[in-house]
């Protein structure tokens, strides 16, 4: 059953991504003002949503690790694996966002980059999680997991402050597609459909990569534990 799910899920994901590509490139009409270049939104917005969700996974994993690290080591290890997987895959998706954004901005705004609230927040988020991954690389052993969890919480705490401080500073990014004010968002239903299909496809793809990364990290933990036990046994 589990094996069937593991083969079926990637297949469904690939089909969804093909369908999403077809919707985004062939079905949805050009934007009235921006023309063809607007289509990058079908990759930019889903990647941003996935990245933010996975950073939330990482935060929950960090909190979980700190909560369980004394009482239930096994649960703590699971939480830590989620924290790492969320941060790593989130950084990848965040990189996609930071690449597609300037590509679009060059055509739409005439500039590659601007220090706008959302752009800056995304960049700072990327920097913070990069430093999180660097900490995990530079430190070792179980203390690294504790330190990384603390940094994960600090980083997440910083994000709303960065966002607010940049809103006071300057803002240029277009209003959100969903939940924006009057006059924002998409008017054509085929555009909304294309966006939703791509959202689903990229979420499935992200989940797939996240799950694989999580599994790899769990194996890694088991292997490290085994190695430690063997070292202890040979020492006796």
């Amino acid at each position: 059953m589990k094996k069937a799910a593991f083969t079926l899920f990637p297949l469904i994901t690939i089909l969804l991504m093909v369908w999403g590509y077809y919707q985004a490139i062939y079905v949805a009409p050009d934007d009235a003002l921006q023309g063809y270049v607007f289509r990058i939104i079908y990759y930019h917005v889903p990647s941003a949503s996935v990245a933010f969700c996975f950073f939330a996974v990482s935060l929950l994993g960090s909190i979980g690790y700190l909560a369980f690290r004394r009482s239930d080591p096994n649960k703590a290890q699971i939480a830590d694996a989620w924290a790492l997987a969320g941060a790593e895959v989130g950084v990848i998706f965040c990189t996609v966002v930071l690449t597609t954004g300037p590509l679009w901005g060059r055509r739409a705004w005439g500039i590659w980059w601007t220090w706008d609230a959302r752009l800056t927040t995304t960049l700072v988020l990327w920097l913070i999680y990069m430093s999180y991954l660097l900490l995990r690389r530079f430190a070792a052993g179980p203390q690294m997991q504790t330190l990384a969890a603390v940094l994960g919480i600090f980083g997440a705490l910083d994000v709303p402050i960065v966002y607010m401080s940049n809103r006071w500073w300057r803002t240029q990014h277009p209003a959100p597609v969903f939940g924006g004010g009057e006059g924002s968002g998409m008017k054509d239903p085929t555009m909304v459909h294309a966006l939703l299909w791509n959202m689903l496809a990229w979420f499935c793809w992200g989940m797939l990569v996240l799950l694989l990364r999580y599994k790899v990290e769990r194996r890694h933990q088991e292997y490290a534990e085994l190695e430690a036990e063997e070292a202890l046994a040979s020492a006796d």
């Binding site: 913070i128 900490l135 430190a139 203390q143 330190l147 910083d158």
Partner: peptide, 21 residues
């Protein structure tokens, strides 16, 4: 960062992003 390798470098790498706002 005191108990990691490259601790002097790591401090700047962690501190500066958090300090941005």
């Amino acid at each position: 960062s005191i108990r990691s390798r490259n601790r002097e470098l790591l401090l700047s790498l962690i501190l500066f992003p958090i300090f941005i706002p």
